[in-house]
Write a protein that binds this DNA or RNA. Structure first.
Lengths: 216, 216
DNA sequence: AGATTCGTTTTTATCTATAATTTTGAACCT
DNA sequence: AGGTTCAAAATTATAGATAAAAACGAATCT
């Protein structure tokens, strides 16, 4: 979505705000004032507004005309929704990527998976997790699909970072290992089914906060 | 995505441009100059820029920093990609919507289907087709999923209107009838499978222009 | 006291002006 | 002639200024 080589001020502001919202540094429902961020980034408010439009399309903020934008709130239903969408689309991507997966890619995925298992905090675990999924899905060669999946990952990460589980330990990622094994064995159906279950499971973790929506 | 009650100038420009791009009135690859549209809509170029950002997120235009935006080009691969994504996501939506489908909704869908079959041109057929899909999918109650599907429908419509088939006749929509029948019989798996096949078929129609990409 | 209206303040949305970058084209050199 | 360099023109990106709408609060009325 947001091109990494987008070096415009709008691009920088978009990335910075997306980062903060995903990390949970700005609470859901918070009103985002354009003048405030214009000053913070040493810019005028025009690029801030453009950043708002991008974030809006990504689903990270909601905008009411003449009333500004607020950080999007989300509830357990949306977490499920995103999980289901990811499951559907990542399976689709994997089906198309599978024939193009080389041993080298699978080795790299395994390495990243180990990195994730040794991660010290949620943040770096999520980064490794995202890299893992990206690595095995990218060869599908479907750019629109991949950017949509990226947006969904951002939404998932937001949930993950929302502190629904205070203490956190790096899990040995059994599912990832099973997916890789199935891919090596060319058992693509097994890999796809495992991936679907794996992604959907994220939305059903125990101990979920059900009240994240802001009282309107 | 774009809220219909968005009465801001940005909103109007966004809708007008999206309309034209989808209808094929502006050719893929065409450079969109902000000053031109600012004057046309009697506005300054700031809301035009915001509209560009929205269209960019929708995939209707592509933007290169400092070089402006162009109407997004698309090739046969992307048509397939969109069809596959629609198939996956519409099936997901239908699975969640199915339990909430009432006889009244199915009757309305059947009526819309007849409207489509009597359509005089591609334009009105597409409108009825889109209404049909929307009607049976909306009860899924997954807003994010529905807006994503809407964006994909826009991309599909763009392809449909791109004149890949000069003469056009309204088809009796056999698939739609089959889907409705399966839904009435509570055979949700049949309905889902038919829907998937139906949507994917769009990308495989004969007589497709394969050279829509602009020579870069 | 509680509600309501009106005016002030804050914030958004838009316009006009300026700066920076890219494109275009002509002159120049080989 | 063909290519290259440099300057002029066009266009994008951003800043600063203005207008309009909404939020807020105080004063008034019931």
């Amino acid at each position: 979505m947001t091109n990494d080589k987008d070096n415009t001020i709008t691009g920088k502001i978009t990335r910075a705000l997306a980062e903060r919202i995903i990390a949970g540094h700005i609470a859901p429902g918070t009103k985002l004032r354009q003048d405030y961020f214009a000053e913070e980034f040493g810019a005028s408010h025009v690029p801030v507004r453009e950043a708002f439009r991008r974030l809006e399309a990504q689903g990270l903020v909601v905008s009411e005309p003449r009333r500004g934008v607020r950080v999007a709130s989300f509830d357990i239903a949306e977490v499920h929704e995103v999980a289901e969408m990811r499951a559907s689309l990542e399976v689709l991507a994997l089906r198309h990527a599978a024939p193009h997966l080389t041993a080298a890619i699978l080795d790299a995925a395994e390495a990243i998976n180990r990195t994730g298992e040794n991660a010290a905090d949620v943040r770096s675990w999520e980064e490794a997790n995202r890299a893992f999924h990206r690595l095995i899905l990218t060869p599908c060669g479907m750019p629109r699909l991949l950017t949509t999946i990226d947006d969904l990952h951002a939404a998932s990460a937001r949930f993950l970072f929302s502190g629904f589980r205070m203490e956190w330990e790096a899990p040995t990622d059994q599912d990832h290992r099973a997916i890789l094994k199935a891919l090596r064995d060319r058992q693509f159906d097994v890999a796809a089914a495992t991936l679907a279950r794996h992604v959907k499971w994220i939305g059903t973790k125990p101990g979920i906060k059900t009240r994240l929506k802001t009282p309107s």
